[in-house]
């Protein structure tokens, strides 16, 4: 998975994305704008993090951080 390294720690870009949605659920377009990252990168990373259970996707396509994932941000 591209969002965690071999030690199980978040990559810099994954950390940046999670920090962006730490307090608010945001759509990939909003995240891309906020984090100044290309939209394709946000879409693929959020899909990756959803498959790992770090985030959940709401009906409107917005991503919300799973409370468990906040522990990863503190590492």
């Amino acid at each position: 998975m591209a969002c965690v390294d071999d030690k199980g720690q978040l990559t810099a870009s994954a950390r940046k994305l999670l920090e962006t949605i730490e307090n608010n659920a945001l759509t990939p377009e909003e995240i891309a704008k906020e984090a100044a990252l290309p939209l394709f990168k946000v879409r693929s990373s959020m899909r990756d993090m959803k498959s790992m259970g770090f985030v959940t996707e709401e009906e409107n396509g917005a991503y919300q951080m799973n409370p468990e994932a906040s522990k990863l941000l503190k590492k």
């Binding site: 998975m1 591209a2 969002c3 377009e29 939209l39 394709f40 990168k41 879409r43 693929s44 990373s45 899909r47 990756d48």
Partner: peptide, 15 residues
Amino acid sequence: THGTLQLSDYEGSWV
């Protein structure tokens, strides 16, 4: 080299 990508990740922009 940037992880797993789908072509559909680019929708909305030209590629």
